[in-house]
Design a protein around this nucleic acid. Structure first.
Lengths: 386, 386
DNA sequence: GCGCTTTCAGAAAGCGCTTTCTGGTAAGGT
DNA sequence: ACCTTACCAGAAAGCGCTTTCTGAAAGCGC
């Protein structure tokens, strides 16, 4: 038995089929004895502060103060309240707290395309870390790139009275979406809600963490030109996303600075498969092949790399390939991908910090520009025959 | 200029340094004109239902009914209420709603280690998709593998009165943690809260989506033995995680069935770097090298692959390598990794479905067993010299 | 035309908390 | 011994909704 060829998968015959379809079959129930320690006093539905106060023999108000410690409470009373709360297993009702106090709740909303995408996962990870430090809970909403869903989620997060709403990778060039967002966000901000965005927004009302997509792509183009390339193609994504438009425009600018015109742009979905398909399409067309290909995201670049490999195109000997973002996977592929590195985790930390900062005053918003670093790796080299 | 060697990174000199440190420098403010459309009537703080009712000339109760549509309301009144709500930009207060209604809120809690980890990201993605379909908001909490933090988050989610609490990759073999979880979860479940877990739990009180780690690892071992290997090493993770313990035990069993004893176990952190370090450590030790290495997770396997490459060990010619989970990246590396595939997204969908299902009755809990599929890819082959 | 049911709007009672406001008690000043 | 401060516990008023309960008006059969 030899190793399967690259890309080929072998499922050994002695294993059953994937269990992914009739999962219900595997469902089983089991008896669970009650842990003796846990029995204590059985709360009917939810233990209320009122019950705690009664148990401790104090008033409702005292119980509240004893547990939150805003005002002074005599030590013995505080002790009694704490003990009663422990005994009864009291858990405050966050809704009631949020409603009664001016403080509001300790949650922030995070809207992104899909946590399964490494770009968002990276940013989200940074947001989570910062949130954890401040004891904030993050309400996550995945839009799957539907502008309408995004607006609906903003509305839901408004209803939840989130302290801040974070939008990652938002930014459609879509009139209806812009209007919708404006009407959602404007009253929210006015009512003290904070909003911060990763990506360029035409609406200038909110704080923004803005990767320098344009400059980064231009710098990448310059680097690639310096390697000797003259003949480029771009694997692009949906043009209604500002990220895509900016990177494409920046790349064109970078080339133009060297007097080079971009030969081909192939559009694909914003996914690995999109990059794969776009690369295949590029190869399928006749004519001289470009010596260097720029995929507007690393996710697409990874797909493109696979397509090139499958087509027998050697990277970088036959063709150079570069991406954008520097998601972790690009260091693992062979050859590792040249890309424009963005500090994803930090962008996540920054966007929540920006949102939570004191409001910037009426009509003002802050822009935090994040510069990308061109990182040359093994996927780019001199053009063939040079 | 030639292509940099594999793994080497070159930052072109004409780019500035990484902007990751003094980000504040890039902060700028800008004036933002108010969109004329958005001006409408400016709500002072928050528009309440009371204001809507007054605007529509109906009572508070009628306004509530008109918007929620539980009871019949005359069409003209309903129209007036809707119009008033639109005009004022009314957004219901979810806290007040949750407090007043028996329904509670539409949120579920999701506790995981780190969304940046592709294993969790995959599962979380499935959870998000299912949640979106049911108009549920997901409150995400990252524990960064601290048992104490995990317990604290359960408490916070209880306070938020989440409909369900989902624990992914939980399952420590830790007495204090078990007790803590039990005392948190038990009253929660009793009060109607749902809990579901991905991973094995000793506490049998909650519904579980349980990957067959043991059987999967055993099957993998059998496959590798069939390839001709006799001499194995395992790159293991923290033994207090049940996932690690089960996979290690299963692998041993699979070998034992063929009369083979596991030669070496190297322990590492549950990360790419952990896998990298463990692999280096394995190579550093003298004596005969194993012909096949099993890393207990794909994340570690990816790190190990890099370490092997750096050490000049060819995979699979000199040494075979296998992982577990089938995270997306393992298909992109060269050679692609043999692994035990788990349907991550689906596991996410199942765990939330399980939690939201009607309660299984007192003292009963369900177990959904997820079988893993051994997938042989290019990283495993016949042992050298066979 | 009278009493019946039916339909639907409004009043009001909470949901579980925070937070003022009030008042009682002990400590301190003269 | 009397009055002032300080301190701190309790009563009560909401926070913004849902949901019973009540009652007015309308529809119907006789």
């Amino acid at each position: 038995m030899t190793a399967p060829a690259h890309g080929q998968e072998v499922v050994p015959k002695f294993r059953g089929p994937a269990t992914t379809a009739p999962l219900g079959v595997e469902l089983s129930e089991r008896e669970t004895p009650v842990h003796p320690d846990t029995r204590r006093r059985a709360p009917a539905a939810h233990v209320t502060l009122d019950a705690v106060a009664r148990e401790a023999g104090v008033s409702l108000a005292t119980a509240s103060r004893a547990l939150n410690g805003t005002t002074r409470v005599r030590d013995d009373l505080r002790g009694r309240v704490r003990a009663a709360a422990d005994l009864l297993g009291y858990i405050p009702n966050a809704h009631a707290q949020a409603l009664a106090s001016a403080e509001g709740n300790r949650t922030v909303g995070l809207i992104c395309h899909d946590v399964g995408d490494p770009y968002f996962a990276g940013i989200a990870s940074g947001v989570m870390r910062a949130a954890a430090e401040q004891d904030l809970l993050v309400m996550l909403a995945s839009t799957f790139r539907e502008p309408a869903r995004e607006i609906a989620y903003v509305s839901m997060l408004r209803a939840q009275r989130a302290r801040a709403i974070l939008l990652i990778g938002s930014g459609f060039q879509d009139r209806a979406w812009e209007r919708g967002m404006d009407t959602e966000l404007e009253p929210y901000v006015r009512a003290g809600g904070r909003v911060a965005v990763v990506s360029r927004h035409r609406s200038m009302r909110v704080d923004t963490v803005q990767p320098e997509n344009r400059a980064g792509a231009a710098a990448l183009a310059a680097s690639l030109v310096e390697l000797g390339h003259r003949d480029f193609a771009v694997l692009s994504g949906p043009p209604e996303l500002t990220t895509v438009a900016d990177r494409l425009a920046g790349f064109r600018e970078g080339l133009a600075a060297a007097g080079i015109t971009l030969r081909r742009v192939v559009r694909g979905a914003f996914t690995r498969e999109g990059g794969h398909a776009a690369a295949r399409q590029l190869l399928a067309t006749g004519g001289a092949r470009p010596t260097c290909v720029f995929a507007v995201t690393d996710v697409m670049a990874v797909g493109a790399l696979a397509a090139l490999r499958e087509a027998g195109v050697r990277v970088p000997e036959d063709m150079s390939l570069a991406g954008f973002d520097d998601i972790p996977v690009v260091r693992e592929v062979s050859p590792p991908l040249t890309t424009v590195a963005l500090p994803l985790t930090e962008m996540g930390e920054q966007v929540i910090a920006l949102a939570l900062r004191t409001p910037s005053g009426a009509g003002r918003s802050r822009v935090l520009r994040i510069e990308g670093n061109v990182v040359l790796r093994g996927s780019t080299g001199a053009p063939p025959g040079s």
